[in-house]
Simulated assay, not measured.
Amino acid sequence: MARTLVVTNDFPPRQGGIETFVHAMTSRFPADSVVVYTSSEPGAAAYDAELPYPVVRDRARMLLPTPRVAGRAAALARRYGCDRVWFGAAAPLALMGDRLRREAGVRRIVATTHGHEVWWARVPGARSLLRRIGAVTDTVTHLGEATRLPIAAAVGPVAARRMVRLVPGVDADAFRARPGESAVRRRYGLNDRPVVLCVARLVPRKGQDTLVRALPEVRRAVPGTTLLLVGDGPGERSLRRAAAAAGLADAVVLAGGHPHAAMPEFFTAADVFAMPCRTRRRGLEGLGIVFLEAAAAGLPVLAGDSGGAADTVCDGLTGHLVDGRDAAAVAARLIGLLQDRDTAAAMGERGRERVRAEWGWDGTYERLAGLLAVEPGHGGGER
């Protein structure tokens, strides 16, 4: 049985869009055909024990392509008979690809990009590393045109011609709207208030600060509107201060981080989903799987016009794209969605239909499996 070694820093119980992507793929492999090599994480032992395939945790909290880590990856590939490798995020771990070929006889290497590689592509030293990654892999994947163009320019013409689009998916049934009283509304005392939900790491690029600045105007037009922020991160303290300074301490609920399996009940509690992400310090939203999850739940979506967000939100049809720095524009769109419930419901329904038709996980897995297939006599990589 041929096996795939998955090398990644992004694996549950750590939370995030890339973690969801990687786990969704590994869970679709036959259990005896995949091995995961990843970093350490609190709570990992109990989580890993429930999985049907081996997960090997490094002692480090973050894997880097050091000689030690590369040596251990090669040893794992030999031990488990892995002749193909998938790097869950290309940069920087795919730099180990050449050593895996030499020492473990790996014949096929796929490296997936998610958006942060665009920053690498625009910084001279990091750009040269992306070119090395293009040279030692068979395929570098991309999410869409917003990320493909800068990454293709960095990896070089030969690797650019081998780039393939590989996008995350959504289990639409898992996020379907559930009628009846919401447990999340009871838990946080939201009652019948209009709720704007944002699910994202609390960092400036995700735009929670813009939502807080927009909220007073929204509440003047739609009294009682509450902002529910789900996620954790370094921006929590500044968001609490901003809400308190604006007299919004009771109108901004910071719910903290929650497992991905708990997300459907948060979407059920919301009237609108909003994440006015913005391009910041050369970082952008690679795609925004959370926009697709919100659409699958039947919510109208307000997204910042950054990177690949436009691939997930059809402006004016399933939601709105806005300048993530413009609090007035964000407020105007939120007010429209909260006041015109028929239009909002129609946007949510169109978004759900689109997710079901175009963004299934099984199709993504089939494409990845095809990319990892080893052709007879294939040695891979640009030489």
Results as ranks from 00 to 15, higher is better:
196 V>L: 05
302 L>Y: 15
304 G>R: 02
258 H>K: 15
260 H>M: 08
244 A>M: 09
250 D>V: 00
198 C>E: 06
274 A>E: 02
195 V>I: 10
198 C>H: 02
220 R>V: 05
282 R>D: 04
310 A>W: 10
262 A>W: 03
242 A>P: 06
184 V>P: 09
230 V>I: 11
324 G>V: 10
297 A>M: 15
199 V>P: 06
294 A>Q: 09
271 D>Q: 06
268 T>F: 02
304 G>W: 04
237 R>I: 08
320 H>K: 10
263 M>E: 00
249 A>F: 07
307 G>C: 07
310 A>N: 12
202 L>T: 03
272 V>C: 09
271 D>L: 02
247 G>T: 01
274 A>K: 01
272 V>A: 06
313 V>M: 09
274 A>D: 00
269 A>Y: 03
267 F>V: 05
254 L>K: 02
282 R>G: 00
270 A>P: 09
309 A>E: 11
216 P>R: 08
202 L>F: 02
238 S>R: 15
232 D>A: 13
277 C>Y: 01
253 V>M: 06
236 E>I: 04
255 A>Y: 03
227 L>N: 14
271 D>T: 12
285 E>K: 07
275 M>F: 00
221 A>D: 07
209 D>T: 13
274 A>Y: 03
281 R>G: 07
281 R>K: 15
220 R>M: 09
212 V>Y: 10
226 T>L: 08
273 F>H: 04
204 P>W: 09
293 E>C: 13
217 E>T: 13
291 F>Y: 15
274 A>P: 04
232 D>W: 01
317 L>I: 05
272 V>K: 10
283 G>W: 12
206 K>Y: 04
307 G>S: 15
